[in-house]
Lab assay of single mutants.
Amino acid sequence: TTLHFDLDGKKLQYTGVSEEIARLVEELKRRGVDLKEIVRILEELLK
């Protein structure tokens, strides 16, 4: 799965993300978590 974000005018793309992580990101968005925080979490998970 590939995730795309537009953060402060920067286009971020994460490829090869598992379905689980993609679902987690969608859930965080639904809960109103700040996009910067979501990206920070995502980068930690993908290390």
Score class of each variant (00 low, 15 high):
residue 1 T to M: 14
residue 1 T to R: 11
residue 2 T to G: 04
residue 2 T to E: 11
residue 2 T to V: 08
residue 2 T to P: 02
residue 3 L to P: 02
residue 3 L to D: 02
residue 3 L to S: 00
residue 3 L to R: 00
residue 3 L to M: 04
residue 3 L to V: 08
residue 4 H to L: 10
residue 4 H to K: 04
residue 4 H to E: 15
residue 4 H to R: 04
residue 4 H to W: 11
residue 4 H to Y: 15
residue 4 H to I: 15
residue 5 F to V: 05
residue 5 F to Q: 01
residue 5 F to R: 00
residue 5 F to I: 09
residue 6 D to I: 07
residue 6 D to H: 15
residue 6 D to Q: 05
residue 6 D to C: 07
residue 6 D to T: 06
residue 8 D to K: 01
residue 8 D to F: 03
residue 8 D to V: 02
residue 9 G to W: 00
residue 9 G to I: 01
residue 9 G to Y: 01
residue 9 G to V: 01
residue 9 G to F: 01
residue 9 G to C: 03
residue 10 K to L: 13
residue 10 K to C: 09
residue 10 K to P: 02
residue 10 K to V: 14
residue 10 K to M: 14
residue 11 K to F: 06
residue 11 K to G: 06
residue 11 K to N: 09
residue 12 L to D: 01
residue 12 L to P: 01
residue 12 L to Y: 12
residue 12 L to G: 02
residue 13 Q to P: 01
residue 13 Q to C: 08
residue 13 Q to H: 15
residue 13 Q to F: 11
residue 14 Y to E: 00
residue 14 Y to C: 02
residue 15 T to D: 13
residue 15 T to R: 05
residue 15 T to I: 12
residue 15 T to S: 10
residue 15 T to F: 10
residue 15 T to L: 07
residue 15 T to Q: 12
residue 16 G to E: 10
residue 16 G to A: 05
residue 17 V to T: 02
residue 17 V to P: 01
residue 17 V to Y: 00
residue 18 S to W: 02
residue 18 S to Q: 05
residue 18 S to G: 07
residue 18 S to P: 15
residue 18 S to Y: 02
residue 18 S to K: 06
residue 18 S to L: 04
residue 18 S to N: 08
residue 18 S to E: 05
residue 19 E to K: 08
residue 19 E to L: 09
residue 19 E to F: 10
residue 19 E to P: 12
residue 19 E to A: 11
residue 19 E to N: 08
residue 19 E to Y: 08
residue 20 E to Q: 09
residue 20 E to H: 08
residue 20 E to D: 13
residue 20 E to N: 07
residue 20 E to W: 06
residue 21 I to Q: 10
residue 21 I to S: 06
residue 21 I to F: 06
residue 22 A to V: 15
residue 22 A to I: 11
residue 22 A to F: 11
residue 22 A to D: 03
residue 22 A to P: 01
residue 22 A to C: 10
residue 22 A to L: 12
residue 22 A to K: 06
residue 22 A to H: 08
residue 23 R to L: 15
residue 23 R to G: 13
residue 23 R to Q: 15
residue 23 R to N: 15
residue 23 R to E: 15
residue 23 R to C: 08
residue 23 R to P: 02
residue 23 R to T: 14
residue 24 L to C: 08
residue 24 L to V: 12
residue 24 L to W: 12
residue 24 L to T: 14
residue 24 L to R: 14
residue 24 L to F: 13
residue 24 L to P: 03
residue 25 V to I: 09
residue 25 V to P: 01
residue 25 V to C: 04
residue 25 V to N: 02
residue 25 V to L: 06
residue 25 V to G: 02
residue 25 V to R: 00
residue 26 E to T: 09
residue 26 E to M: 10
residue 26 E to W: 07
residue 26 E to I: 08
residue 26 E to Y: 10
residue 26 E to H: 13
residue 26 E to N: 11
residue 26 E to S: 09
residue 27 E to T: 09
residue 27 E to F: 07
residue 27 E to Q: 11
residue 27 E to W: 05
residue 27 E to A: 09
residue 29 K to A: 14
residue 29 K to M: 14
residue 30 R to Y: 11
residue 30 R to M: 14
residue 30 R to C: 07
residue 30 R to I: 14
residue 30 R to A: 15
residue 30 R to G: 15
residue 31 R to A: 14
residue 31 R to G: 13
residue 31 R to D: 13
residue 31 R to H: 13
residue 31 R to Q: 15
residue 31 R to M: 13
residue 31 R to W: 07
residue 32 G to Q: 14
residue 32 G to C: 08
residue 32 G to W: 05
residue 33 V to D: 09
residue 33 V to M: 11
residue 33 V to T: 13
residue 33 V to A: 08
residue 34 D to S: 10
residue 34 D to K: 09
residue 34 D to Q: 11
residue 35 L to S: 09
residue 35 L to N: 10
residue 35 L to P: 12
residue 35 L to Y: 05
residue 35 L to E: 10
residue 35 L to V: 15
residue 36 K to T: 13
residue 36 K to G: 10
residue 36 K to V: 12
residue 36 K to R: 15
residue 36 K to D: 07
residue 37 E to G: 05
residue 37 E to S: 09
residue 37 E to P: 03
residue 37 E to I: 10
residue 37 E to Q: 12
residue 38 I to D: 00
residue 38 I to E: 00
residue 38 I to S: 01
residue 38 I to P: 00
residue 39 V to W: 02
residue 39 V to A: 03
residue 39 V to K: 02
residue 39 V to F: 03
residue 39 V to L: 12
residue 39 V to S: 01
residue 40 R to G: 13
residue 40 R to H: 13
residue 40 R to A: 12
residue 40 R to N: 13
residue 40 R to D: 11
residue 40 R to I: 09
residue 41 I to R: 12
residue 41 I to K: 09
residue 41 I to Y: 08
residue 41 I to M: 10
residue 42 L to K: 00
residue 42 L to V: 07
residue 42 L to G: 00
residue 42 L to H: 00
residue 42 L to F: 04
residue 43 E to I: 05
residue 43 E to G: 05
residue 43 E to S: 05
residue 44 E to A: 12
residue 44 E to H: 13
residue 44 E to M: 11
residue 44 E to G: 12
residue 45 L to I: 10
residue 45 L to P: 03
residue 45 L to N: 10
residue 45 L to Q: 11
residue 45 L to W: 08
residue 45 L to G: 05
residue 46 L to Y: 04
residue 46 L to G: 03
residue 46 L to F: 05
residue 46 L to E: 03
residue 47 K to D: 11
residue 47 K to W: 10
residue 47 K to S: 13
